[in-house]
Deep mutational scan, measured.
Amino acid sequence: DHDVVPEDKFQETLHLKEKEGCPQAFHALLSWLLTQDSTAILDFWRVLFKDYNLERYGRLQPILDSFPKDVDLSQPRKGRKPPAVPKALVPPPRLPTKRKASEEARAAAPAALTPRGTASPGSQLKAKPPKKPESSAEQQRLPLGNGIQTMSASVQRAVAMSSGDVPGARGAVEGILIQQVFESGGSKKCIQVGGEFYTPSKFEDSGSGKNKARSSSGPKPLVRAKGAQGAAPGGGEARLGQQGSVPAPLALPSDPQLHQKNEDECAVCRDGGELICCDGCPRAFHLACLSPPLREIPSGTWRCSSCLQATVQEVQPRAEEPRPQEPPVETPLPPGLRSAGEEVRGPPGEPLAGMDTTLVYKHLPAPPSAAPLPGLDSSALHPLLCVGPEGQQNLAPGARCGVCGDGTDVLRCTHCAAAFHWRCHFPAGTSRPGTGLRCRSCSGDVTPAPVEGVLAPSPARLAPGPAKDDTASHEPALHRDDLESLLSEHTFDGILQWAIQSMARPAAPFPS
């Protein structure tokens, strides 16, 4: 592969990997390779389809078979030569091979799209000592099968071997295949498990690692696999990028399955594409389908809103127990993405979901129960707010008499603000006073009005108090039968009158 990737590009890729991570280095090298001529790309395919690569990765054979028959990708048995050289000459001794072996032994695996480039050397060096003999053996194999790289107009793939297949390693990572398949204008990513390549439709969760975000852009890794992070704060999961590491605690105790298979379609829109997988259930989501939507993949363990709600429900009964003089119970939860139609709101002032922060849900004790107040519409209280300059209440639009249902020339009671006709409430011909108009209920007259088809109010509507207090003497005590009587009149003013009279009014101040 030294004929494909020059030394300066190799060093530039290593520097970019240390600065921005393996995914960015892979993407940059792939983009550079696509700008080369067809001879360089053909050399790339020839390096990929060597015999030892085909033996190690069985899924490469179907890719090789898909090439046109007129494309010669065979390799000479006596060494490598550029395709432009007409004579089959043995190339001179390859010093770059020693360079590659020494550099890969030092860096474990470079971040390139060629056999030198995919593992994360920093994480491997940190986690190597417990498994040094086995990992050293794996390093000797890295130059042979560490990076199976493929690129063409139909298929483009980048393979990364790992030393996680050490025997006896619980939940060992089998390997990473960062794979971009450009077929019919689409893009897919796969993962390699035990020599087999699994596409998103049959993606397997190998051991402790999972394909957290099938994305090839942005600074985030394709698999949430930063070796420096180790395990999740809650004892979460091992990262795919942690090559040759000792077994780590796999999943939280509440995880239903340690080796679950995540779905390959969004649980909201039932469509495929780039998904984020939940650590607590097999569901996966688009970032845009979450509520609120996320802009980037959160670091650490992530769970959907259903799993978060289940966790909150487990903690909430203990938080609601009476604990005198104790601060509110704080339950730190990872930043969760909410699927459509589901929402768990945190306290005000918290950062938005999706940031690399930890939301704190506070379970406050329930407030003391209070008697429910009568629910009145805002339009129902409008007549009470229509007060004239002299303190006389004006008529609201649409006000109707509670007896006849007519809204023409209605009066407004100064005591309960109900609309009424003087002739309907006082049919006996009582003279109307000039000021202080009161309806039949507030004036103490319980004589029913002779209106055909309208039920008369119940005599129990009024329960006047002592006459010594004029204001308190007109406080009506309405009961269920009074409400039914008012409802039978089918008037809004009657219902409003009952609601206003049912509310307690402050006692009249004593004259000074």
Rank of each mutant, 00 (worst) to 15 (best):
Q242D: 14
Q243I: 15
G244R: 13
S245V: 11
S245F: 10
P247R: 10
L250G: 07
P253C: 04
P253M: 14
S254D: 05
K261F: 04
N262T: 12
E265H: 00
A267H: 08
V268R: 14
E274F: 03
C277K: 06
C281N: 10
A284I: 08
L287Y: 11
L287G: 08
L290G: 12
L290V: 13
L290C: 06
S291G: 10
I297C: 08
I297V: 06
S299I: 08
S305R: 13
S306E: 08
A310K: 05
T311L: 09
P317E: 10
E320N: 09
R323V: 09
P324T: 11
Q325E: 12
P327W: 14
P328W: 14
E330D: 09
T331L: 13
P332V: 09
L333T: 12
P334R: 11
S339T: 09
G341F: 15
R345F: 11
P347Y: 14
E350K: 04
P351T: 12
L352C: 14
M355L: 12
M355W: 15
T357A: 06
T358F: 14
K362V: 14
H363F: 12
P368Y: 12
P368A: 05
P368C: 15
A371K: 11
P372S: 11
L373Q: 11
L376P: 13
S378L: 13
S379V: 12
A380K: 05
C386F: 15
C386I: 06
P389D: 15
E390D: 13
E390C: 04
Q392Y: 13
A396S: 11
A396V: 10
P397N: 12
G398I: 14
C404K: 03
C404S: 04
V410D: 02
L411E: 08
R412V: 07
A417I: 13
A417N: 14
H421D: 03
R432G: 07
G434E: 12
R440W: 09
V446W: 11
P448H: 12
P450G: 15
L455V: 11
A456D: 12
P457M: 02
L462A: 14
T471E: 09
H479Y: 07
D481R: 02
D481T: 03
S485C: 06
L486Q: 06
L486C: 03
L486E: 08
L486R: 03
Q497E: 03
W498A: 01
A504M: 04
P506Q: 03
P511S: 08
S512T: 10
